[in-house]
């Protein structure tokens, strides 16, 4: 049963890849739930299933079996186009490689999702300015990604993820390409947003600095939950 506080509920989730006769269980029967306002890190060695689990929670990938419920909605019940709309409204993504659109400015990258949602120009402008200010990029609105450092680009990606007022933000190795100063800066921003605005963050990471900041750490090994530690 999904309660209001449980934003994400993962029930008996499996993801199996076939390579010839060989079957690889990337996610092997995971059950977990993530509540509103959590700052959770899913950790584990490379190949343990972190990204696969995150993709399935985000509706980017379909499980072999099991279910992911977001805000009470089972993702398996959604068609391809409804799932796209669902992602647009409910989930914010931050990717390892920033994945900003190189032809758009920081402000346009941030307001892009809102434009897909059909928000007015005034609302888009005001919110993107506020978000860029929140991530410390005031005055950089007109810069294109190539004019920003890696850390700054990732902060734009965080602003973009928050632009649609999602239920939660999924961040896959967000600090993997950042230096320690940028990492620290980015984590401070996300921790502040979590503290002040109760935004839920779920990270897939093996960066110790992220793990140190997390309030909950779920450790995976061979596609299974090895431990689930709340701090």
């Amino acid at each position: 049963m999904t309660t209001k506080s449980n934003l994400v509920e993962v029930v008996n989730l499996y993801k199996t890849y076939s390579a010839g006769d060989l079957e690889v269980h990337a996610v092997d029967g995971i059950n977990l739930s993530i509540g509103e306002g959590e700052f959770t890190a899913i950790v584990g060695p490379s190949g343990c299933g972190k990204t696969t689990l995150l993709n399935m929670i985000g509706g980017l990938d379909r499980p072999t079996s099991g279910e992911v419920n977001i805000d009470g909605t089972p993702l398996s019940s959604l068609s391809e186009s409804k799932l796209i709309d669902f992602r647009l409204k409910k989930i914010g993504f931050v990717f390892q490689a920033y994945n900003l659109l190189p032809v758009l400015t920081a402000e346009e990258n941030t307001s892009f999702i809102m434009q897909l949602q059909g928000k007015s120009k005034e609302e888009r402008r005001a919110r993107s300015h506020q978000l860029l200010k929140n991530v410390g990029l005031e005055g950089r609105e007109k810069n294109k990604p190539t004019q920003l450092s890696g850390g700054q680009q990732q902060r734009v990606a965080v602003a973009r993820a928050l632009a649609s007022r999602p239920s939660f933000v999924l961040a896959d190795e967000p600090t993997a390409n950042l230096d320690s100063h940028s990492t620290s800066n980015l984590l401070d921003i996300m921790a502040r947003l979590n503290e002040e605005e109760n935004i839920t963050f779920v990270f897939a990471t093996h960066d110790q600095r992220v793990i140190d900041k997390a309030k909950r750490v779920i450790t995976l090994e061979d596609g299974k939950v090895l431990s689930d530690e709340r701090r």
Binding site: G58, L60, S81, I84, D85, R87, L88, K89, F93, F95, N99, L101, F112, I113, L116, R160, S164
Partner: peptide, 11 residues
Amino acid sequence: EYGMLIGLGMR
């Protein structure tokens, strides 16, 4: 890029 945009919610 196309994959990312579909992921973010672009039809």
